[in-house]
Nucleic acid binder design. Structure first.
Lengths: 212, 212
DNA sequence: CTATCTTTTGAGAGTTACTCTCATTTCATA
DNA sequence: TATGAAATGAGAGTAACTCTCAAAAGATAG
């Protein structure tokens, strides 16, 4: 299995950081500081028990500045950078693969890579998302973003319009089975090691018409 | 197409109201008053521009009491009573139908019924859900409830465990295509008249393995 | 019908996420 | 080094929720 594509996709992101005007680099550093301190405090004290004021103090900024970087406290946990990478890797799959097989190949590439580089953050975020109602709710908004990128990539591969009714149904069905897998993970009915296989199985199951 | 089942299911709900201790009946009346006034005010002034204080004043209760009936302002819009009815109607379908066909039959029964009795409320709720980010987010929590009832009903029909991995994947895939249909409705790409056919087509499409 | 017990309600104070405004500082450019 | 633009901090304000406690309303026994 090729491992170079997601590396490249990630590298492209990291690369951009270094050769940026000072101002922009400082902003990115501040953003990351906020997120790191926030996740640490959430893990230590719990989400609700941690105030924005505390996060701002830990990151050495003012509360006003916090809200300039993250419109809500929830965004600190919910915002991630994987969606564009996943969309990109879908596009890089051979054209002869079906949409479902392209998705399966993408996940087999991206998941191990993400787990290797960011396991701790991923675990913290998933645990918070499972436990805090406000964060669970926000998940849906981020699914809508994922849907946009996903249906765009699918549309390109299949030559159908991005707002084709069946493309949209397919996109949401895929997000559905992904959510099913995430829920099993959050409920402790599956482990992180099993996740790639579970997702693969779910997509194949979807392609067979969900025979139950 | 049978029309008696959803009538009975609804009737059973309405029936209970009449022969209830005074206290309970008053509570239900208060609850409905809050919801009616809230939806009216939201429609007139917008969701964000309407405060809980205004709703409480309109319903002639105190703000404290508002939060005893609805834990959050969002719940007033998001809470609905259709899920148990839908689960019940799924159970009433002939055993020889596949899970997907049972769902299709259920929707052909329940949707017209719901549209006939509650069209105004449904439209208001859907429009608010489309427009207000906080409400969009909350949709996901109510999907989780729907999932519980749905997977329970599917599990009974198929004889598989409710937490069987494939039952869960199927349930979320179904919720996915339903969400796809709702989104088309909210985006103005489909009408309420077309919704039953669209949903029917989506479920059939799902049963064919989503060939895109 | 009265008295008691339980449940529901209202009033009010407190917390915190989030918004807005304006003065100040920090960085970019000539 | 001076000038303009963008980022920051400080502070005041709003509104959704939480908690506590006393008053009111409904249920129940005598």
């Amino acid at each position: 299995m090729s491992t170079s594509s997601p590396d490249r996709a990630v590298d492209r992101l990291e690369d951009r950081l270094s050769r940026l005007p000072l101002r922009e680099r400082k902003k990115l550093r501040t953003r990351r500081a906020i997120q790191d301190h926030a996740l640490r405090l959430f893990a230590e004290q719990g989400y609700d028990a941690t105030t924005v004021e505390q996060i701002a103090a830990a990151a050495e900024i003012s509360p006003s500045t916090f809200f300039r970087y993250f419109p809500t406290k929830e965004d600190v946990v919910v915002t991630d950078e994987y969606d564009p990478i996943m969309a990109q890797v879908i596009r890089e799959q051979p054209a002869e693969l079906s949409a479902i097989d392209a998705l399966r190949a993408m996940l087999r590439e991206v998941l191990p890579q993400a787990f290797t580089t960011d396991m701790e953050t991923i675990k913290t975020r998933l645990r918070l998302t499972a436990e805090v109602p406000a964060l669970r709710a926000r998940t849906f908004e981020s699914m809508r973003n994922t849907f946009e990128l996903l249906s765009e990539a699918i549309s390109e591969r299949t030559g159908r319009a991005p707002d084709d009714p069946e493309v949209e149904a397919f996109g949401w069905a895929v997000l559905g089975v992904m959510q099913a897998a995430m829920n099993r993970l959050m409920d402790g009915k599956a482990t992180y090691e099993e996740l790639p296989d579970l997702l693969d199985h779910y997509l194949e199951f979807l392609g067979r018409g969900c025979p139950v």
